[in-house]
């Protein structure tokens, strides 16, 4: 599983990255978490409000910090 956290370095983006990493660790899922800070790469996903989460190329959320439960649901493919 390929997870990207989109954000240019604001506080919310860091918080989201932490949440994603802890959700991955908790579920013991095989996944790579990358922080994407390059604006051109962020825009390639069509995201205009950061922070965003992209899982396997699909934008799951943008402009907000999703709850831990929400992130876990995505990771488990629910």
């Amino acid at each position: 599983m390929d997870i990207e956290v989109l954000g240019t370095g604001c506080i919310k983006c860091k918080k989201l990255e932490e949440n994603v990493r802890s959700a991955v660790a908790e579920l013991r899922i095989e996944a790579s978490v990358t922080k994407v800070e390059d604006i051109a790469k962020i825009m390639e996903h069509g995201v205009m409000s950061t922070p965003g989460v992209v899982i396997d190329g699909v934008v799951k959320s943008e402009g907000r910090i999703p709850s831990q439960q929400e992130i876990k649901n995505w990771l488990q493919g629910k």
Binding site: T8, C10, K12, C13, I39, I42, M43, V47, M48, S49, T50, G63
Partner: peptide
């Protein structure tokens, strides 16, 4: 913090 992506978009 979203001003840049918004402007570009």
């Amino acid at each position: 913090c979203s001003a840049v992506p918004l402007f570009i978009g």
